[in-house]
Design a protein around this nucleic acid. Sequence first.
DNA 1: CAATTCACG
DNA 2: GACGTACGTGAATTGA
Length: 918
Amino acid sequence: MPHLYLVDGSGYIFRAYHRLPPLTNKHGEPVGAVYGYTTMLWKLVDELNKADGPTHMAVVLDKSEHTFRNELYDQYKAHRPPAPEDLVPQFPMIRDATRAFSLPCIEEAGWEADDLIASYTKAALAQGWSVTIVSSDKDLMQLMTDPSVDMLDTMNNRRLGPADTEEKFGVLPEKLGEVLALMGDSVDNVPGVKGIGPKTAAKLIQEFGTVEAVLEAAPSMKPSKMRDNLIEHAEMARLSHKLVQLASDVPLPEPLEDFALQGIPDAPLRAFLEHHGFRTLLNRLSAVADAPVETHETPGLEEDPPCNHDGYETVIDEAALDQWIEAARHQGWVAIDTETTGVDATRAELVGVSMALQPNKACYIPLGHGGTDMFAERPVQIDRAVALAKLKPLLADPAVLKIGHNLKYDMIVLGRCGLDVAPYDDTIVMSFDLDAGLHGHGMDELAATHLSHSCIAYKDVVGTGKSQLGFGEVDLKAATRYAAEDADVTLRLWRRFKPRLAYEGSTRVYEMVDRPLVAVIAGMEREGIKVDAGVLAKLSSDFSHQIAALEEEIHGIAGFKFTIGSPKQLGDVLFDKMGIKGGRKGKSGVYSTDVNELERIAADKDSPGREMVVKVLDWRQLTKLKSTYTDALQAQINPATGRVHTSYSLTGAQTGRLSSTDPNLQNIPIRTETGRQIRDAFVAEPGNVILSADYSQIELRLAAHIADVPALREAFEQGEDIHNRTAMELFGEVNRDTRGRAKTINFAILYGISRWGLAGRLDVTPDEAQAMINRYFERFPGINRYIADTLNDAKARGYTTTLFGRKTHFPRLKASNPNERAGSERAAINAPIQGTSADIIKRAMARMGPALAEAGLHNVKMLLQVHDELVFELPEGDVEAARPIIQRVMATAAEPAVKLTVPLGVEIGVGPSWGAAH
DNA sequence: CAATTCACG
DNA sequence: GACGTACGTGAATTGA
């Protein structure tokens, strides 16, 4: 029976455009999307040779913007920005590409490609054909109601069936339209029902069957926000239902029979590929002459073969390991990955190592499978100590580059086994330096984005829940497929990123700031910081008593018990039961009870709630300190080291800052006396002390330099108090009030000011706030110029840069939603300053170890980084020698790459604990 | 899992 | 004229 392939061309054009770099051909025409689209068609050619491959094929495109859906709903697809200007000229080229493959191209005014696909599918089924829809569009999944229809997602090399619909949306294709109608679609601006997303929509449809039935049942549901939304937005749901429905009776522009595949003639395809200089594809077309073709393609874009999981080798004898090691030495680079028993690198045990040398040339070396129980059945593997001894010189070989994805983790695990890793590249950091702000940097996401490959899911290897296995319990075949794939994918990513770094101007920040930091951070995490559990336990117990007493008093005032920790219940008590005025409800209908609100009540001498609110504020502080710090930190102490080992993310903050998790040691309390006591639990070993060094006002100093503000620069040069100086400039006199206001305004400037935001903070009217902003701009010329230039640049290029060339992308700067856009604008104003500060302290960190070592100070350990502060532990006797070195390294960290016009101030404190060092 | 709150720079 | 109103984070809790 004939098999019809219908290609959703329009869907692919956009996806290809967004995932490929902006390539141009030798004629200077943008061709990124065309290239992606062409390779997609190429992949389909492989299908021709399959037993149940296509006998008929056509590409379907959108023709016009206006369809019957716009008649139904004038907002349909209304939020779509116009196509990017370098994509527009590619639309006609995509038709050329289709013709080059001698494929029919179907488009019809007034109909979307989806409708044409639905109609052709119906017609083909009526004749008993089978149909494959080449797309990953969720709307088209509705068509898989017939067993003769399936989908092929060439971007991810996946075949999709009804089961995928069920997995993704909780219902079979028959009911998909109902679910889509309820959840809506922000991309097409299908409204759906407010507050209902895929999960809720699936649940409702599973229960009631149809949108209509759900809407009918709504009034009898138990009261909830969802019920209200269903009733309120019933019409929108009905409308959405019509919008997502595919029209399957469109008159067919060409008869099905005309789609019969005739083979693909060589000549037109060759001409097309030559015109654009798609050399890789041209080479594949014929093994004959490959005349050099000039292109501006990013180098390294050649398509890799798909991952062949069954081709990976499990290395279980020494001779094989020797061969891999020798091959890596000979080649000069190798991608590596470690498998372990857990996610915490400072506790997990090594289970195996994988290596990749070329795409599909990868292996897995099991080292700890079957556990350590000597009586248990263990699969055959190389003796762990022997294998590590063989790997050690390779990992330390200065002539062999080790490539990892989040190599910091592997460095810690391997370091605990006595193995150093150098030199190295890290693809997670490369991705961050190239694409911060555009997407995440996890391997699975990058593989999908850059390699059109979906990685084996870790969960599929080890299972989930109670039956989840440790990686060491996974059988070697499955372990090899998973582990070697990770190394393979890492290698493939590296081959793409390495040339991009240079091509896109990010080599500097990668080499001078981020890459050297990986090993430094690994060392800090492994070191950890000593925490005195006794101090924390004492605080926990003190807090418990105070919390219990406050609880009783608060319930006493209310006259009944309630959950103080529930903002909902607290709001009801304060604003409804006690009748306090001025409660503000947020969009979820709950009164806000945050600290601003409670302090407002506390400040009102006539409010009946003052007494309670003051106690609630105390209660809040104490419960926060207890649960987040004094209790949690005790549990985080590693029993093996007696220390707490945080994990820093190098890619967590868009601006280039680090972030800290498990536990977060960058938000240990300091602002209140009660909270500050927690810092006393961070202590030095006997004979040692804690030294804390922090940059003073680094962001304001950088703003003075970057925006070139003479008055601010002078103030810093003279060592003046910067907030006093600002107060003088703005208000003509310095007192506590004006200094406080000046400080607020200084920070507001760094964050991208709005008159309303400033008005709220200073408790003045927006007009008064605007007057202060105007005066600030007047007194500090340069600031408004900086803001305008930064925004112009960011809008034109899509990203901001720091003094060290770090890019942060802001795709939402072009959002049609004004709030979203304004938020991105403020972030873009802040990013160069916050990011430069991050660059500088990172450089200081990378230089700190060598500088101290040069002075013979080998026992000074850098333990923590808190954005503008570094915390060290060192022998008491080394303090006087270390102090000037730390001071100098931090103060000169920008040099020589960047010469600042303001000095960087560094303040140092020393004491037996972190608390005492401040 | 979302919303709220709050700890830090 | 409405919207929400300072940038960047991570963690705990409640409640659906």
